[in-house]
Structures are given as C-alpha cells and as structure tokens.
C-alpha cells in the first residue's frame, strides 16, 4: 500500500489523478449547460440533453447493439481464451511462444486495419453477414486481454495444486473447475471487464462493419457529433461513465475481485 507519509509520491499521485479527472469533470459540467453548443462556463442548468438522448433512436439502438456485441465478444473470448491459456501454460507444447504471440497479435495490428481487413475478407470475399463479421472483429479485440491476464495468473499458480487435486480423487475436469478456476477467478473477471469496456467503446472496427441495421453506440456518437455540436454528446458520455462504473461495482460486489486478491 501507498505509504501515506510519503509526501512527494502522494503529490505526484494527486497530480496524475487531477489530469485524468479534469476532462471528465468538464464533460459532466457541460452536459448540464443550457447553451446550444458544448461550451464553458455554462450559463444555466438543464436536463434537456439527457432527455434528448432518448429522442435519438441511433443512441438507443446503438446502446442495445453495443451491449449485445460486447457481451457476446467478451464471453466467447473467455470461452476460447481460457482453454488456450491452460494449454499454453500447462502442457509442454512445441512452439508455445509462437502460439502465445499468435494469440496476442491482434494487439500489434492497428484496429483500423483489423476492421478493414475483416471488411475485405469476411464481408466482401466470404460474404459473411455483417453481424458475424462484427462479432469476429470484437472477439479478436478481446482475445489478447484474456490471454494476457489469465496466463499471468495461471503462471503463478503452482501446477502441483492440480496434481494434488488429481491425487485426491479429482478427474482433470473436476480439478479445473474446483481448483484452477477459483484461483484464477480474479484474472478472469478482470479480463472480462477489459474485454467488455474495450469492445463497448470500440470505434475503428465497428466503423467498417456497421450497416443499416447495425449501429454501434460509439459510431452513433461520432456520427451525431459530425452534424451536431450540442451537449447531448456530453450527456451520453456521462451516462456511459455511470453505466460502466455501476457495472464494475456490480461485478465487484457479486464476484468479489477484492476478496480473492489478497
């Protein structure tokens, strides 16, 4: 823990916090301003822009679609990623590093390129439905987080623990669910959060793979901003911040990351 008596460090921390938080605070303030454009200082106070969010079908539909895509992409990344990590860390695979880098490679490629490549191959060449391509794109975005975070905690988990479970009478499957998973739970939850947030906020991939019925919230916001510079954008940003924070709180509360990380 941070030693509270360490003043220089405390000041440094506060400065960093300040730099991070100030823009957010400004967004919150502008969302209540009554001028027709985003501006500071605000002259009056209004909830108008929050009401306006619900008047925009793009935002409402985009929110639902983004939520749907983020959940599917995150869960499928966990479903594929965790077994992959298990194999990479527990079996003496040939070329294990090669696989590791392969799974992490999406992070090296600019997302805009991933989006474009998927558009070119999945949509144009293979004529896959847009939604599938979009899900694949977001899955690729999520997978490296799962691999990175979960393999970090798999590597520090003593492999003898599993062996002890087998000797105690567990099949390999039982041992995974009874012994391995509970001990990597924190990293799985963290990976899920990273996946969800990154997918939910993603623009570059969604930009290439949206269509008439496929409207993602971040791209909807971007589109809206191109035509209107009113504080509705600030208002929806605030809503998203609250949504994310509440979600974190819920996950934290019911799955208890802190309880496990001692």
């Amino acid at each position: 823990m941070l030693d509270r008596k360490n003043k220089p460090l405390l000041i440094f921390g506060l400065v960093v916090m300040f730099i991070i938080l100030v823009p957010l605070v400004l967004v919150v303030i502008t969302s209540f301003g009554n001028q027709p454009t985003i501006s500071l200082p605000i002259k009056g106070f209004t909830f108008e822009w929050y009401k306006n969010i619900l008047q925009q079908p793009d935002f409402v539909d985009g929110f639902k679609m983004s939520l749907f895509v983020a959940l599917i992409a995150s869960f499928s990344a966990l479903l594929i990623g965790i077994p992959a990590v298990y194999a990479l860390t527990r079996y003496n695979l040939q070329h294990a590093e090669w696989f590791q880098s392969f799974f992490l490679s999406p992070t090296l490629i600019p997302e805009i390129v991933v989006g474009f490549a998927l558009y070119q191959t999945a949509v144009i060449s293979f004529k896959l439905p847009l939604l599938i391509s979009l899900l694949v794109g977001h899955f690729l975005l999520c997978l490296p987080y799962v691999i990175r975070l979960v393999s970090a905690s798999m590597l520090i988990l003593d492999p003898h623990i599993e062996e002890a479970a087998w000797v105690s009478g567990c099949t390999k499957g039982q041992a995974f669910f009874l012994v391995v998973l509970p001990n990597i739970k924190a990293s799985v939850i963290a990976a899920f959060m990273m996946c969800f947030i990154n997918s939910f906020n993603n623009i570059p991939i969604s930009l290439f793979l949206n269509g008439p019925a496929l409207n993602m919230l971040p791209t909807a916001i971007l589109n809206y901003l191109q035509n209107n510079y009113d504080p509705t954008v600030s208002a929806i940003s605030v809503v998203l911040m609250i949504f994310t924070a509440v979600m974190m709180w819920v996950v934290e509360k019911f799955l208890g990351v802190n309880k496990l990380v001692k």
């Binding site: 003593d158 003898h160 623990i161 062996e163 002890a164 479970a165 087998w166 000797v167 105690s168 009478g169 567990c170 099949t171 012994v179 509970p182 001990n183 496990l260």
Partner: peptide, 29 residues
C-alpha cells in the same frame, strides 16, 4: 489413472488449495 489410485501425496511446494480453508483443504479428498 491417478484419481483412482487411492494414494496420499505430499508435495515439496505443499500445493495447498489457496482458496480453501485448512478444514476444506483436508476435507477435499
């Protein structure tokens, strides 16, 4: 297979289940 052999094993690294109490570690088998 290992889980049917009815052996008890003590490991160099102890290999206790970190998420279980002492009681539940012992009760596991």
């Amino acid at each position: 297979p290992v889980h049917k052999r009815e052996f008890g094993m003590v490991f160099q690294s102890y290999a206790l289940f970190p998420h279980l109490s002492v009681f539940n570690n012992v009760a596991f088998g």
